[in-house]
Design a binder for these strands. Structure first.
Length: 219
DNA sequence: GCCCAGGTGGGTA
DNA sequence: TACCCACATGGG
């Protein structure tokens, strides 16, 4: 299987096909964090409804979310699914932001990426993918996000690592691409765009921009 | 009606 | 460690 040239070639093909995506769709780093929790195991369209509810309720801040009764928060995030669990998770995240950073998101830039990741993983409801969403899209750290889209797209390209544990699959990208937050940001956004543009039933679709690199072509 | 969607935490062998 | 399972709404 190819190394850096292949991964950059895939990136170039996606960028040429879809253009720059300008992710994450959020108005602030805090909104990225909230979205990263709300989108867990759910379609983005549902997470978006919940975010709209929070915005309309004036609850898109850590202090506002802490101040809400949990039942009220549950109702606001209901459209995102698993709403009782996600309300708890948002509460936990906002408690963390207050206790550790005094709600000053900008002050998170004082901590190293490894330290931030370790601390985030200690927050209820924040697993590896959510932590990396926050690190990359809210804080601009060069961390490649591994999600269901990443695994699906690269699994189709024949990457056996797509079945591997999170850290091993992530290391594939960290080792073969330069440590560049802007690159990882755009790359993952393009993966999502691509995965949402192609059918799920075939290895690769007709006219797929990645087909020339697919080792399964002709099999 | 059925299936799926940008995970995570908790329990069990 | 390696599986299970619960958690829940909305769109195709």
């Amino acid at each position: 299987m190819g190394g850096a040239p292949l991964l950059m070639d895939v990136y170039d093909r996606l960028l040429k096909q879809y253009g720059a995506q300008g992710w994450w769709p959020a108005r602030s780093p805090f909104e990225v964090m909230v979205g990263a929790v709300l989108v867990q195991a759910t379609a983005w369209s549902n997470a978006e409804k919940a975010i709209s509810n929070l915005r309309a309720a004036g609850a898109l801040s850590a202090s506002a979310i802490r101040g809400l009764e949990v039942e009220a928060l549950e109702e606001l995030v209901r459209p995102s699914g698993f709403f009782r669990a996600k309300a708890r998770k948002l509460k936990a995240l906002c408690e963390f932001l207050c206790e550790r950073y005094g709600d000053d998101i900008a002050s998170m830039s004082m901590d190293g990426t490894e330290r931030l990741r370790r601390d985030l993983l200690g927050v209820y409801g924040v697993g590896e993918e959510t932590a990396d969403d926050i690190l990359l899209y809210a804080l601009g750290r060069p961390v490649f996000v591994v999600d269901a889209y990443t695994r699906r797209v690269f699994g189709r390209l024949g990457f056996d690592e797509a079945e591997a544990r999170y850290g091993e699959f992530q290391a594939l990208f960290h080792e073969r691409l330069s440590r560049d937050a802007a690159l990882y940001n755009e790359y993952h956004a393009l993966i999502v765009r691509h995965a949402n543009s192609t059918c799920r039933s075939k290895p690769l679709c007709e006219g797929c921009p990645l087909s020339a690199e697919c080792p399964r072509v002709g099999v």
